[in-house]
């Protein structure tokens, strides 16, 4: 969909989510990511659409059309016709999705307001939601006005510690720690380790860190090193959880299907390691 000023590309909104932070949360997924993790579980959220039109032909429901406005060609998506078969996503050769709505903070707010009686707050995720900080700041401000909490689920690559306007309206962040060494982190994500680590430290100091999370991928990175680093960063903050997520084949790109899923025992051992290093709450999922 065509991008206009003041909007962010919304990939999906889940009304009630049990897995995106404290209590019941409305989860808002924004399109576009600044990392490219080998095992990405939703690669269709990585890039913006380049309007090639491959999905237009493939769509069985006629929900996607080529359109043009002010001389700019773009893929238009009609949510009311969509049957959610995800043929478009499988067709896309660009790790993108045509099912994007460019929405202003007010438009998102209008859509999620009916959920507010039942939720603790919202969580923005992605993609990488902090690529749209101005949008987040505006949306969070509106959410706070309604007495609800705002969480950001982030890979930590965008420095947040100096974004005062954003932090003023942010209750908590949930930050990925994908690897424990610079080398591993670059290999896995294409980006360095410095910013995620700095974000984790600073957000913890500010009391704005809900959890850190590590996806455990056997053989690709040194998972023990990751957990050791993660534990050392949060051990002093008993309220911060360490979430250890099993790498699973669901959703990953075909070429990575040969990476084995970790065993329960491996997960438990990593949990014990974190506990030994002083982490109070460990969630294995």
């Amino acid at each position: 969909m065509r991008k206009t000023a003041g909007t962010a590309p919304v990939n999906k909104i889940i009304s009630f989510s049990a897995v995106d932070g404290f209590g019941n949360r409305t989860a808002i997924f924004l399109q576009g990511c600044n990392q490219n993790c080998l095992y990405c579980h939703n690669p269709e959220t990585i890039h913006p659409c380049r309007a090639c039109g491959a999905c237009v032909e493939a769509c069985p429901a006629g929900a996607i059309q080529m359109a043009e406005e002010a001389g700019e060609r773009y893929v238009a998506y009609d949510i009311s016709k969509c049957c959610n078969c995800d043929t478009c996503i499988r067709t896309c050769g660009n790790s993108a999705s045509p099912k994007i709505r460019n929405m202003t903070a007010e438009e998102v707010m209008e859509e999620i307001l009916p959920y507010f009686p039942f939720i603790d707050g919202i969580t923005t995720s992605g993609g990488e939601c902090t690529l749209h900080l101005d949008f987040l700041t505006e949306l969070y401000g509106l959410v706070k006005k309604e007495g609800k909490t705002a969480y950001a689920d982030t890979n930590g690559q965008v420095p947040l510690w100096n974004k005062e306007d954003f932090l003023r309206v942010t209750d908590k962040t949930m930050i990925d720690l994908k690897a424990g060494t610079e080398k591993d982190h670059r290999k896995l994500t294409g980006m360095g380790l410095h910013n995620p680590v700095e974000n984790i430290k600073r957000m913890a100091e500010l009391g704005k860190l809900y959890e850190i999370r590590t996806v455990v991928v056997p053989g690709v990175v040194d998972n023990r090193r990751t957990v050791e680093l993660g534990s050392s960063l949060i051990a002093a903050c008993p309220e911060v959880r360490y979430k250890l997520i099993k790498f699973r084949h669901f959703g990953v790109r075909e070429e990575y299907l040969n990476i084995p899923e970790p065993s329960d025992q491996e997960m438990e051992e990593l949990g014990d390691l974190a506990r030994k290093n002083g982490v109070r709450e460990i969630v294995i999922t």
């Binding site: 049990a18 897995v19 404290f22 209590g23 019941n24 009686p117 039942f118 939720i119 603790d120 999922t285």
Partner: peptide, 20 residues
Amino acid sequence: PFEETVKRNPQYLADIMKGA
């Protein structure tokens, strides 16, 4: 009916219930 994942987050149901 709720999925397995909800079991790890009883506050999720508490939020829904209180809101309702």
